[in-house]
Design a protein around this nucleic acid. Structure first.
Lengths: 329, 329
DNA sequence: TTGAAAGCGCTAACAG
DNA sequence: CTGTTAGCGCTTTCAA
């Protein structure tokens, strides 16, 4: 194997018989250059198979064109689609994307925050479910959050959770459900998600029904989740309608329901939440509230770019949700 | 808003009354240092809220501790799980992970290759389906491929596709299927995937049946895929067993089958492929061949690290698959 | 145990 | 139109 030393600007300059500056200019298409020089330089580059060292450029520019996506895990239909959409947009804008699966571990989330603070990335999109990371409050570096309140100065992109809750519960009511239960993940007051629960409770109260909510952590196994749902069916055999906080749970609930001989949609109606690609493909029968994932990605990228460009008055946005009618409700 | 200038080593050194070198040593725990000095430096760092600039360090070390994952898209159960597993392992080893969704676009794939060649990342894991990117042949930089032949010198991690094919088809034969069709994505000779088809054909021939394969591109819409499957049912109404090349297609086939009044498993048996988390959760009824995704991730990381560390004799590996018995076959 | 100085590879004033 | 020079922030010989 031939020992290869790195070719740098200097080497190209020497071979082309010009200065580093000139080569740099050719590289960046900046300033006035004679065609002859440009050609000479290109020839030299080709001959040496020159490759610019991006790290050196980054050091000078103090910009990496890198952003990090901090979500619990990419192995989930909603996050997978969201991250794919984010990556697509960032890529078009010349940004590379770091995958930050926080696994709902505050330490890992903090690591990614440190990347930002250390100028290893130009910005952060966060959608984890941890709370109380105080650094978020202090930093003025570019962060946009998705579906989560992080800090007073950090803009949030969310879908209309209250409206989503209303749509779901109203659908179950229209279907004639008398005993509607809501599942949610443990609510911390920092998530716009609680608005879904709020909508559920408001609508239940309005109809003089007692709201009942079961909490299921995001980061436990399917087995564990099924255990909670079994408990739910056992404690509330009268249940005939369920507003699940995400499609995966909706799917698990439908399965567990069968164990109790409750069949969808005849003696149990279920509305899910999210409506991601993968779920639509694998479980098209699910009636669900669809979050506008592509639009959320577009907005988040837009806001983060504004922050990166130094804009100060960047506002949170809420996007409309949509009911997907299928056969489970 | 207060204008904040970047704190650097120099500033810390000045405040602590020592030299840059000393601060650097404290930072890296290198060389002999008196406790007093260490404390002074730490105090200064704290007071200034100093954050080392990682880019500068990378420039010096010629190492970024970054790897890129180049797969068609992360919005797919198999790739999502694989990328999540890869990220988890790289993270533990101090590597950050770039998400490279190539969308089966050779230009994008080449962009990521360029990152590697430009020393922006230390290594590449590729699992895209493009072929004929000649740079792969030339480079000696660290690349590991997953389920895909990329170049002679590039190690491949794959699962035992031939065995997977045998298991699937044998299962359908055991179930008494007489007319078994295989779906696959268009085969280019660079994919170990073709071994599945080989196994299918070998077993069919052995049983004196005529092998029939329908090809479905990876990157077309569900609608388009369904169209192909409708064609399949129309052209082969006698079909009673299907070996699908992935679980998503299996799921689509089962749905399309219903349109033709073919119900699983009574008058149609289907075996899928992949057995990823999300699929198991959303479609647990699917009988499928499960790829050992976590083990594949472990191996791929292991091999890439060997390459990054300069090892030369890095060998490809094949890992065993497993049959998941459920109710569609 | 500590410091001075050179340099990683590139860019951008500024001067010609 | 092109070159000289001074860094970007850090690490590491080498010398003290």
């Amino acid at each position: 194997m031939v020992e290869k030393k790195t070719i740098k600007l200097d080497d190209v300059a020497e071979l082309a018989g010009v200065s580093k500056t000139t080569v740099s200019r050719v590289l960046n298409n900046r300033g006035y250059l004679s065609d002859k020089t440009i050609k000479k330089v290109h020839d030299a580059m080709d001959k040496l198979n020159y490759r610019p060292n991006v790290i050196a450029r980054q050091l000078f520019k103090q910009k990496t064109n890198l952003v990090a996506l901090v979500f619990p895990t990419v192995d989930n239909p909603f996050f997978a689609e969201l991250e794919a959409e984010l990556e697509k947009r960032f890529d078009q804008l010349g940004y590379r994307v770091l995958m930050g699966n926080s696994q709902d571990n505050p330490a890992k989330e903090q690591d990614y925050l440190k990347l930002l603070l250390n100028h290893q990335v130009d910005g952060l999109i966060v959608g984890s479910h941890n709370q109380g990371i105080s650094e978020y409050q202090k930093t003025t570096r570019p962060i946009v959050s998705i579906e989560r309140f992080v800090g007073k100065q950090i803009p949030v992109v969310s879908s209309d959770n209250y409206q989503g809750g209303l749509l779901a519960v109203q659908r179950l009511l229209n279907d004639g459900c008398k005993h509607i239960i809501h599942t949610n993940y443990p609510i911390n007051l920092v998530s716009p998600n609680e608005l879904r629960q709020q909508a559920y409770e408001d609508l239940m109260n309005k109809h003089h029904r007692k709201p009942i909510t079961y909490s299921v952590s995001f980061d436990v196994s399917d087995k564990e989740k099924e255990r909670v749902f079994r408990k739910m069916f056992r404690e509330h055999p009268e249940v005939d309608g369920i507003f699940a906080d995400n499609d995966t749970n909706a799917s698990l609930i439908i399965r567990v329901g069968k164990e109790f001989d409750r069949h969808v949609p005849d003696d149990l109606k279920v509305v899910g939440y999210d409506g991601a690609n993968i779920t639509r493909t694998l479980s098209p029968e699910l009636t669900t509230i669809q979050q506008p994932i592509p639009e959320m990605a577009t907005k988040a990228v837009e806001l983060l770019l504004q922050l990166i460009e130094g804009k100060t008055n960047v506002k949170s946005v809420t996007l409309p949700v949509k009911m997907i009618n299928s056969t489970t409700a």
